[in-house]
Amino acid sequence: MVHVLSALVENHFGVLARVSGLFSARGFNIDSLAVGETEDPTISRMTIVVHGNERVLDQIMKQLSKLIDIIHVEDLTGYESIERELLLIKISANATNRANVMQIVNTFRGKVVDLSPKSLAIEVTGTKSKVDAIIELLRPFGIIEVVRTGTIALARKLELKLSASRTGKKKSAKKKTSKSRQ
């Protein structure tokens, strides 16, 4: 199962290496990772998409929380959240088929950001599945290059703010793990 994790981390050098090192050292699967500064310049937010069963996810959350530079981690799966990915795609298109491409781009509310006689660069934002879909639709025209950011996510209601996390860190770990063993 795919999970979207949202982590607040110290905006230091080396934090990304700690997180990625943790994933490789523990053999966790990471699908995508996006990181950027938050409203507080001393804090960055990492959005990490991972897959694994409940037990693996439990370990990922705990191991991430254990890193000294991680302030707070939340699994957004199950919460209402907004997920977006940015796609930049360059495809072959000339005067004859450009209109067809434009039609697809408009349907997806994309934007043409660069135009040349033989190619088109398009910008699209959306969920991962939307981005996957437009890539498939554009493929027949000839894809020259694809760049995508990986998912970033924002919880709709849940307050993932530092004020809350100061006391809330490792909350998930304090919770009783009262699963039956078989």
Partner: peptide, 8 residues
């Protein structure tokens, strides 16, 4: 003391 030891 280490939450990650639990249920590992």
């Amino acid at each position: 003391i280490d939450p990650s030891s639990i249920a590992k």
